[in-house]
Design a protein around this nucleic acid. Structure first.
Length: 528
RNA sequence: GUCCCCAUAGCUCAGCAGGAUAGAGCAUCAAAUUCCUAAUUUGAAGGCCGUGCGUUCGAAUCGCGCUGGGGACACCA
């Protein structure tokens, strides 16, 4: 819709212009402040310019009216245009808001260590990534979703050690002393029990079994993580194992050396990341020859770029922000265009319950488990609240709000609007096919405005995806639901003279709500 | 010390590729159900958009400084 408007205006004006929303829908559907910027150039008042320019739109079909108000040029779409778009949307439900894009994107998110269940911090990146995946795919981008599994290195070793100690302590009854950094959540105790059942008591007898425990535990944890994700409707296309990539280290390392940006010092191998803005150079190979964590990411990004996507998006926890520069430097040294990588940061989440800090789960080892929150408020509410604020800003919310069944709870409010429409159709005894064909050209002003709002979804999606700001979608859905409730209270539908037209209008609103919800991973309710 | 995020109504937050009177929900007060779900709606009240300077015809929005809050600064992942 927006594109049609832009095309129509460019055709007439032959100029660059900014298209925006008027302050008030009564002015029009779209507006441009173009006259202000032309004032200097033309040495005329913006008010005069706006009047002259608006006069050119006398017979541009899609506009009913083009008016100059205080220097702004306001465009009001014609009811026929809105009606034809509405009819198209209802005929092509699945295509509503779809677009075609050439770009291919590799989207990596979550990538939590397979050493424990997902906690609430992971949930934010997870939900954000999934929403971008859904919206982007709907817009026609070819997106691959990927989870990088850190199944090599210290953390996984620690998992094995922790299981080993826990088994010796809880099952074999030996006294053990726990080093500070070991995993101590109750899930470790539970998992050690499972190990006891599946692998037998002897697994805890000898330290030589720790490696096996690590690997076994990692697989179990990955299974748990997948199930945590599945509970909120997230399924990844790819899981890439860090460990499996290590065989490619020599090749990646050779590329790095080829760039001349590596050097040896103190028995370690460094990359000159300071040349690309890093605070210090970084070690990639330790004195004992073991590659560092960064090396793993170098191989991984080499692997990613080899696969030849147009664009790469990583969603990381905000605590990794300092890591961006060095990874980009490495990508550059590998000979790729590092600007193709975009890193989005998911900031901290603080949870409250009844106004008090949400208590940490002992089970998780003093984290808030994502699954606990899902059990408490449900996947839909979790998704909605996490998506309603920009991901790179801190978020605080009270889980109790999302258990209320009223206006406090936005997901409830939106579902109610959708369910309402369904019930009205049922009450009227009509189906979509009964109303599709009717013309909406004679709707009241309020009806036209509601229709216009419902038809805005495609441009909201476009805007949300391109700015990576999914909260634009949740905000839009809340507003659309509010408009529907308001209209409902002011207009009687069933039995009125305009029954079929109003039903068609409502059908478009429902389509927009349903589609928008679907793209943030929520299934709209038909009945409540 | 360096870097990142934040500061808008009592609370939680929108608005920010500069544009017409700064919005929503909650909380407070007052209204609307013989009628499609009142799980809703309407109205009132509530704001030096943290602060100073700058850019601009125009700044909540852009730039610099300051103040306050959160976070990150490994050869751990």
């Amino acid at each position: 819709m927006k594109q049609r408007v832009i095309d129509a205006i460019s055709h007439e004006l032959q100029r660059e212009f900014v298209l925006e929303k008027p302050a008030n829908l009564s002015f029009g559907h779209y507006a441009t402040p173009l006259a202000f910027s032309l004032a200097k150039e033309l040495k005329k008042s913006p008010i005069l310019i706006a009047e002259e320019l608006s006069a050119r739109f006398g017979n541009v079909g899609i506009f009913q009216e083009v008016t100059a108000i205080k220097g702004y040029i306001n465009f009001k779409l014609s009811p026929t245009f809105l009606d034809s778009y509405a009819s198209w949307a209802l005929e092509n439900e699945a295509d509503f808001g779809k677009d075609t894009k050439e770009e291919t994107i590799l989207l990596e998110y979550v990538s939590a260590n397979p050493t424990g269940p997902l906690h609430i911090g992971h949930a934010r990146g997870a939900v954000m990534g999934d929403a971008l995946y859904r919206i982007g795919s709907h817009l026609g981008y070819t997106i691959t979703s990927e989870y990088y599994v850190n199944d090599a290195g210290n953390q996984v070793d620690l998992l094995g050690l922790s299981l080993y100690l826990s088994g010796r302590e809880q099952i074999l009854g030996y006294p053990v002393s726990w080093p500070e950094q070991f995993y101590r959540g109750e899930y470790i105790v539970d998992l050690a029990q499972v190990a006891y059942k599946e692998l037998g008591e002897e697994i805890f007898n000898d330290e030589s079994n720790i490696e096996r425990l690590s690997s076994w535990g990692k697989d179990k944890m990955l299974e748990l993580i997948r199930s945590n994700l599945a509970d909120v409707g997230i399924v990844f296309e790819n899981f890439v194992s860090e460990k499996s990539l290590y065989s490619a280290w020599d090749a990646s390392f050779e590329k790095l050396q080829h760039s001349g940006k590596t050097y040896e010092e103190g028995g370690k191998i460094w990359i000159r990341s300071t040349e690309l803005g890093d605070e210090k150079d970084r070690v990639v190979v330790r004195e004992d020859g073991r590659p560092t964590y960064l090396a793993g990411d170098i191989i991984y990004h080499d692997n990613k770029f080899e696969r030849g996507y147009d664009h790469y998006i990583n969603i990381w926890g905000a605590d990794h922000h300092g890591y961006i520069t060095r990874v980009k430097a490495a990508i550059h040294f590998l000979g790729y265009n590092e600007t193709k990588l975009e890193v989005l940061l998911a900031q901290m989440v603080s949870l409250l319950k009844g106004g008090e800090p949400y208590k940490m789960s002992k089970r998780a080892g003093n984290f808030i488990l994502m699954s606990d929150v899902v059990d408490e408020i449900g996947s839909d509410a979790l998704r909605f609240v996490f998506l309603s604020k920009k991901s790179d800003t801190h978020l605080e919310f009270d889980v109790d709000v999302f258990k209320q069944e009223d206006n406090n709870n936005p997901i409830f409010y939106i579902n109610y609007a959708h369910a309402r429409i369904n019930q009205i159709f049922a009450k009227a005894g009509k189906s979509l096919d009964d109303v599709k064909g009717v013309s909406l050209a004679h709707l009241s002003e309020d009806g036209q405005n509601l229709l216009f709002s419902a038809l805005l979804l495609p441009e909201v999606l476009e805007d949300a995806f391109s700015s990576r700001q999914v909260q634009k979608v949740t905000e839009y859905l809340k507003n659309l639901a509010a408009s529907l409730h308001k209209f409902y209270n002011e207009n009687r539908v069933v039995g009125s003279d305009e029954e079929v037209a109003l039903l068609k209008l409502f059908a478009v609103v429902a389509l927009s709500l349903r589609t928008g919800l679907k793209l943030i991973g929520i299934t709209a309710k038909d009945k409540m």
